[in-house]
Design a protein around this nucleic acid. Structure first.
Lengths: 134, 134
DNA sequence: CCTTGACCTTCCAGCCACGGGAACCCTTAT
DNA sequence: ATAAGGGTTCCCGTGGCTGGAAGGTCAAGG
């Protein structure tokens, strides 16, 4: 398989596949003409990576997961630890975003949104209502 | 005021303040010795930027908001539009993260997390249970 | 044989919003 | 004179790609 076919099947752009080879995640063979020659195994790994990335795992996590994926003697605890840590980070991110959202929603709600200059949003960002820029 | 004092008062690292000057968000004066000389106005703008960034606004949004902040003849509708769009993006991001979270939580929950190799997480990422790498 | 066009190759630059660190200058205190 | 603690510019690195230039390869058509 050439890179185009693998790109289509894995859903990853060819550029990304080359990048993944560059950072050592896959090692496709080479044809005599210099073209990359992907085996099924490479395609599986790329598909794996595409899904892991879609779940938001970092490249570091992906690398670790891929190693575990290929190690049939792995302990599932190791996998679960990585995924659990990622889950935790997602929870933190969601909490942070929701906190932001609450503040922002409050401000947006308080803003008239008309042609007058008075704006609680800018007042809040500026610190106090008095120092309205200079 | 020198950059250190402004950094402390605004809560922004000196590096970030120099960067903001570099991209044209502030224009501090210069002392004869080459040091940046910040006025109150600069400090207000930096504080404004720090809060806007803390609310997750992009630098583009910050630039626009800062312009509005300094334009005493602005229409609050313009501010509200920017903030509303940002709120919308946050909502989208939260929804996406929660969707990810649900998938991931399901997988983590299904994984025994012991010393055996069987792992629903890897099986899901790999596509099917049969092609357990090669 | 030549061309066209789609495919492939490598390499370099850029993205965002900074952070680290080098190499150097200015000020103040001793 | 020196040391500490400011400040300055400049360049590189981050993550995870993406775009583009410049060129090699292959299959089809005239």
């Amino acid at each position: 398989m050439n890179i185009g076919e693998v790109a289509q099947k894995s859903g990853l752009p060819a550029k990304t596949i080359r990048y993944y080879e560059g950072i050592g995640l896959i090692r496709p063979l080479r044809d005599t003409n210099g073209y990359r020659a992907f085996r099924d195994r490479d395609l599986h790994k790329l598909t794996f990576l595409a899904r892991a990335r879609a779940l938001g795992f970092s490249m570091n996590d992906c690398r670790a997961l891929l190693t575990l994926y290929e190690d049939t003697g792995r302990a599932s605890a190791h996998v679960k630890e990585i995924a659990g840590a990622h889950l935790h980070r997602i929870d933190e991110k969601v909490a942070q975003l929701q906190s932001l959202r609450a503040t922002l929603a409050h401000l947006v709600d308080a803003c008239a949104g008309d042609d007058r200059p008075d704006c609680p949003i800018l007042e809040d960002l500026g610190g106090t209502a008095d120092q309205s820029a200079g």
